[in-house]
Simulated scan of single mutants.
Amino acid sequence: MLGNVLTGCSVLAPAGMLADLAHGLDVSIRTAGLLITFGAAALCVGSPLTAWLTSRIERRILLATTLAVMACTNVASALAPDYASLLAIRLVMLAIGALYTPQAAGTAALIVRPEKRGSTIAYVFLGWSLAAAVGLPLITFIASHYGWRAAYGAVGAFGVLSFVLAAWRLPHGLKGVPVDLKTWAELARNRIVVLLLLITMLQMSGQFVVFTFLGPLLSKLTQVGSDAVSIVFALYGIGGFIGIVIATRVVDNWGAYNTSVLSTALVLAGIAGWAICAGSYPLMAGAVAVWGLGFASTNSMQQVRLVAAAPPFAAASVSLNTSVLYIGQALGSAVGGALYGRELLHGIGFAATAFLIVALALVILSRPRKPVSVA
């Protein structure tokens, strides 16, 4: 879970300090936003590729090494002399960091009993909520007061701590099912797996149309400063923390499908509220809080459902989910960047809403079929 805090901070950090990066590196905000777009591209390629290349490595060694690399590359980011160097370091960071979230979910599934997998995977994914609730506002605060280099340095220091704890506390001898070409073929033939992956992509595309440029959009639409932006990031993260805690407690009784419908509906309600209320800081902040209630639990429920859909191939299916998640991030940030570059600031929220409407419709269509009893 703590490793996911580091992963979440590493992935989301540029969104929390986009204006500071643009100013410090002497580039436009849209160009700074490409750190997220290209980073997401590295993640979507890296996740299934690294899952295949590392499937025979013992989980404790694999996860601890991944955390060490993320810690070192965050420190290197703090020392980057220019934009090109920072982008190159980020691509290396995320190509390797793509391993962590899916392999952490697969490792959690190995540790606990099958009936506890849903709540355990949701708990492990709680790290992403903490990254948004605590890490992202802190990154925004540190960057606005002490500079973006200090923010990267703080993430790197936390990465060292995460590495030490993972190396010390994770059980020895955990290995998943080796991933080979037959694994990908089996998953491609599984219709529910394919549908769930499409849902993940649409959920993330819609969110990152707005999220990538959340800070600059708030500043332009409501004329607020960096501290007010930090408060909105905090509301988003606190909402995510509350949402994933609730999801963790109810998923074993409600089922992952019902929990997924609720969380996706909350994200849609929040983003639609953002679009409709654009220009009013209090209303936009409230909409982000509602959005936050669903953002973390949507993806954790997707992981739970994928594990249930093909248990022997959990590590591979979750890595594919991570891959399409980052395809969604890249697509969403590209759409948001194109609209932002044309000053279509109000249209960004409505474009995001359209993605989420389709995502919710597909979640409803993915309802598990009850087995037909034969007399």
Rank of each mutant, 00 (worst) to 15 (best):
M1N: 12
M1Q: 10
G3L: 12
T7P: 10
G8S: 08
C9M: 14
S10M: 13
S10P: 11
G16F: 14
A22E: 07
G24P: 09
G33V: 07
L49W: 03
T50N: 10
W52D: 07
I57G: 01
E58F: 00
E58H: 01
A64K: 03
T73A: 08
A78R: 09
A84F: 13
A88G: 08
V92I: 05
A95R: 10
A98I: 06
A104F: 04
A109G: 13
V112K: 02
R117D: 07
S119T: 08
T120P: 00
T120G: 03
T120M: 08
I121M: 05
G127P: 00
G127V: 03
S129G: 10
A133D: 00
L138K: 06
A143V: 06
S144F: 07
A154I: 08
F163E: 01
A167W: 04
G173P: 03
P178W: 09
P178M: 15
V179R: 03
R191P: 12
R191F: 15
V193E: 02
V194D: 14
L197N: 07
L198T: 13
L198P: 06
M204S: 14
S205W: 03
F208D: 07
F211P: 06
T222W: 03
Q223K: 14
G237H: 08
G237R: 05
I242K: 13
R249S: 06
R249I: 06
S260H: 05
S263T: 07
A269I: 10
G270E: 10
A272G: 13
A275Q: 05
I276K: 11
C277K: 08
A278T: 07
A278I: 03
M284H: 06
V288H: 02
A289P: 00
T298M: 07
M301L: 14
Q302V: 11
L306N: 02
L306P: 01
A309Q: 04
P311L: 09
F313S: 13
F313N: 12
F313T: 15
Y326H: 14
Y326C: 06
S333H: 02
S333D: 08
Y340Q: 11
G341D: 04
G341C: 05
I348D: 03
G349F: 08
F350R: 01
A351N: 08
T353H: 11
F355I: 04
V363R: 02
S366C: 02
R369D: 15
S373W: 12
